[in-house]
């Protein structure tokens, strides 16, 4: 089985601070990490290949430093890594990103399965996986929490709002993985060192034959026109001191105001 895994490097959003003066994000010093759901997609791919044979290729679109997440994929057991990187890809929205990734995937030979994380934590749109599937003209299964091989088809369990749904699809197919699908392995030092020495292919818009007018800002129909921090009300009553006194005081307030 030939599996392509698309991953994304994101800023660690739990470290994000807002500059109170300008109301903008303080970007300095925010570390970059692999999108958490993508680790689960890599694990799912490596696991499938361990069981059924084949090859795992990790791919990301991003600036040169996004190479870090590919090394992480290699350390987890991926065989090959491809960095899709070009200045003209910068600021692509989900439509342009899925166009570029789909072209890069077809450029890399045959594939049976494309795996992605369900959504990226920073953008949180979950739009790129269906976009890639549409550009590739293959079926999609989103929010997967289990994948089983059934001869030439796959059985995929999905997590919906209040239901689990099991579907069967032929390959090639794109599956986006929920974080409940597995527990990603933590590669040891040796695997990390091996991954460091592996070659990473770098492709620009010429090598994957995409039209620059369909990527980056030009290929992106959506445009962010304003970014701002939400504001919330303030002023409340505060209790400090002995835990039992505070607890009692709060409970009394809630009872007095007929909330409980």
């Amino acid at each position: 089985m030939n599996i392509m895994v698309c991953v994304k490097q994101i800023p660690d959003t739990s470290e994000v601070k807002i500059d109170p003066e300008t109301n903008t994000i303080v970007r300095e010093g925010v570390p970059s990490v692999i999108n958490p759901a993508d680790e689960h997609a890599i694990e799912a791919a490596v696991h499938l290949v361990e069981e059924h044979g084949g090859k795992v290729t990790v791919m990301t679109m991003g600036p040169p430093q996004a190479e870090d997440v590919l090394r992480q994929g290699l350390a987890m057991g991926a065989d090959e890594a491809i960095l899709v990187s070009d200045r003209c890809f910068a600021a692509s929205d989900t439509l342009a990103t899925s166009y570029v990734l789909a072209n890069a995937i077809t450029h890399n030979n045959n594939f049976d399965l494309v795996l992605t994380g369900k959504q990226a934590l920073d953008g949180d749109t979950a739009q790129v996986p269906p976009g890639i599937a549409e550009h590739l003209g293959i079926p999609q299964v989103t929010s997967a929490i289990g994948i089983e091989v059934e001869e030439d088809r796959l059985r995929v369990k999905r997590l919906l709002e209040e239901e689990f749904e099991t579907v069967e699809v032929p390959m090639p197919v794109l599956i986006s993985c929920s974080s409940q699908i597995n527990e990603p392995r933590r590669p040891g030092i040796k695997a990390k060192l091996m991954a460091k020495r592996k070659e990473i292919k770098v492709w620009d818009h010429h090598s994957i034959e995409v039209e620059s007018c369909l990527c980056g800002i030009e290929g992106s129909p959506t445009r962010v026109v304003r970014v701002f921090a939400p504001t919330f009300e303030t002023d409340g009553e505060r209790f400090e001191g002995e835990a039992s006194d505070c607890a009692l005081a709060v409970v009394n307030r809630l009872v007095e105001s007929k909330i409980i």
Binding site: L121, D122, R223, V224, V227, A229
Partner: peptide, 20 residues
């Protein structure tokens, strides 16, 4: 004018689709 959470929900962004 479409407003949604951005940057892991730490900010809000207003987005337009002008030409499609």
């Amino acid at each position: 004018e479409q407003t949604r959470p951005a940057f892991g929900g730490n900010l809000l962004a207003t987005i337009l689709c002008e030409q499609t």
